[in-house]
Design a protein around this nucleic acid. Structure first.
Lengths: 161, 161
DNA sequence: GGTGATGACGCTACAATATAACCTAATTGA
DNA sequence: TCAATTAGGTTATATTGTAGCGTCATCACC
């Protein structure tokens, strides 16, 4: 996510980890760095490739372990419908993960919509369901792409899944 | 989904397809049947196994092709966070797909919450985003599991992804 | 400074999910 | 009936994610 300086995000992540008594090791930091430097979500193997550009050859478990850590700490999010990961902009406070995913240009926008959060909560409690991890991913076409191609239709099948 | 007679669902699916002029072939019907008979979401390879119990040996593309068709027709839904599929209860009218997924017993409940739909819509339009396919999957613990084990904590990592 | 416990990582192998590509068979519409 | 279209069979392979094990680093404590 390039909208904030990656440095700033990294710095805040380090502070957060220190405060929580967990270790932001070199590998974990590197993965976070790569994710923050990307404007779009990256697959685990994309990250792996990026890390291999350095000296050493790494294997998938290294990346997945770093991602597990970063997910637990709320420093990155997983986009389930893309099998991909993005850096989080505001890891300081817990929040639902809600995303707008452009099917044309691939950019992902994290939103924090109180209405969605509230509706989800009341829908869950109406059925006695105890929510732990909400996944909200709206796939569609972002305003930029809609403008440049007003007739664009999503690659995604149907509209009624 | 066993809450409605699978026969009834199948019958309505056939009628829908006829009305739409698309073909609910034997393979497609079989996949839908298997999904409707299951109380829980099934992976593509689970379906494949179930289909292999008959005479012939089938390959993955057969199942994935049938699933693509059923998804397009809104007869099944994909649960992104589980890489699995469920039959849809009310394919007649288009609807957002919203699910409560129990992390303990694995059951998936499809809900249709007007508030969620509305919030998603307004959040999207606020950013000029044209939504095509909303993915709403709340992972947590269902009321039944919460009752039988009040301290159950989700298998899912963290609460703050 | 040792030392044992724990956590992080390298590495190999493999499991699970999904698709490409090509060909044959069935169905449709004229 | 025949050409066009759609569905399905088959092989191979791509993509995503884990298990399991050994080694090294770090930390708490003596």
């Amino acid at each position: 996510m390039a909208e904030q300086s990656a440095d700033a995000v990294l710095e805040r992540a380090a502070a957060l980890c220190a405060r929580r008594g967990v270790r932001l090791t070199a590998q974990r930091r590197r993965v976070l760095e790569i994710l923050c430097a990307s404007a779009r979500p990256l697959g685990a193997y994309d990250i792996l490739d990026a890390m291999r550009e350095g000296p050493r050859g790494l294997a998938p478990p290294t990346v997945y372990r770093a991602l597990d850590f970063l997910l637990e700490q709320g420093l990155v999010h997983k986009i389930e419908s893309l099998h991909a990961f993005v850096g989080c902009h505001h890891p300081e406070h817990p929040h639902a993960s809600q995303f707008l995913i452009c099917d044309t240009c691939g950019t992902v926008t994290e939103i924090e919509n109180e209405g969605i959060t509230r509706s989800l909560g009341s829908a869950a409690s109406a059925s006695g369901f105890r929510p732990a991890r909400p996944v909200v991913e709206v796939i569609g076409i972002c305003s930029g792409c809609a403008k440049s191609d007003p007739d664009a239709s999503p690659r995604t099948t149907g509209g009624r899944t």
